[in-house]
Lab assay of single mutants.
Amino acid sequence: TEYKLVVVGAGGVGKSALTIQLIQNHFVDEYDPTIEDSYRKQVVIDGETCLLDILDTAGQEEYSAMRDQYMRTGEGFLCVFAINNTKSFEDIHQYREQIKRVKDSDDVPMVLVGNKCDLAARTVESRQAQDLARSYGIPYIETSAKTRQGVEDAFYTLVREIRQH
């Protein structure tokens, strides 16, 4: 089974770092803004072998026109913010609204991801993020692309959301 996953969120929150940590098991430290990259990885989730087709997208506003296209083809979405960047957390709402509009559905598989949880300088409390996820009816997972904490959990949870859909 193949799953088309799309990673969305503001610029600099760590979308590529999360994806590369999942696929290649290493942490990319330097920031190089993405336009669009796709990665494929075969994994076993709950005993089922599946192929993850992951689209890593641009957070930069100037590429926002490309969003409709990949939102149409994606089956599930990782909505990523950084726990030390309140603005990126506030941006999640717009991504969710755009996904709902493009998919013409209120019920699209999504996982809210709070990345950079290895950093002490948190400005978005776990509780705020949990409340937001609960209001959307989606899971919330904290990750660190640096330490790998929660990385597999985030992507695998999204696959489970798609399966249950």
Rank of each mutant, 00 (worst) to 15 (best):
V13M: 13
P139S: 12
R160W: 11
I92K: 07
N25K: 07
V108N: 00
T143R: 07
V8F: 13
I92C: 05
F155I: 15
V7H: 00
I92M: 12
A145N: 15
L78C: 04
G11Q: 15
E2D: 01
Q94K: 14
E2H: 04
V13G: 14
F27V: 08
V7T: 08
E61Y: 14
C79H: 09
N115F: 01
H165V: 11
L132Y: 14
N85K: 05
K15H: 00
R122P: 12
I35E: 06
Q94E: 10
A154G: 11
E90M: 01
E2N: 07
V44M: 00
S88N: 10
A154E: 09
F81V: 06
Y95G: 08
I35N: 14
A145K: 00
I54H: 02
A121S: 11
N115S: 13
K103V: 04
V13A: 07
V44R: 04
D131S: 09
R40K: 04
C79M: 07
Y3F: 04
E36N: 03
L119Q: 15
F89R: 02
E97C: 07
N84P: 02
A129Q: 10
Y63S: 15
Q60S: 15
Y39G: 00
F81K: 02
A154H: 08
A17P: 00
L112S: 07
V102Q: 00
Y31D: 05
Y63V: 14
K41C: 11
G137Q: 10
D91I: 08
K4C: 07
V102I: 03
F155K: 06
Q21P: 01
S144W: 14
P139L: 08
V8W: 08
K146R: 11
I45N: 06
D153V: 11
L55P: 01
V28R: 02
V6Q: 03
R134C: 10
Y3K: 13
K146S: 15
G74N: 08
K116N: 15
E90P: 05
D106A: 01
Y3P: 12
V6D: 01
Q42Y: 01
A133L: 09
D32W: 09
D37G: 01
A121K: 13
E30F: 05
V111C: 08
K116D: 12
I138M: 10
A120L: 12
E61S: 11
T73R: 06
E142H: 11
N85F: 04
G12Y: 15
G11I: 15
I92P: 03
D56C: 01
P139V: 09
G137S: 14
E48M: 04
D46Y: 04
S38Y: 00
L22F: 10
A145M: 13
K87D: 07
N115L: 15
S135M: 00
D104A: 08
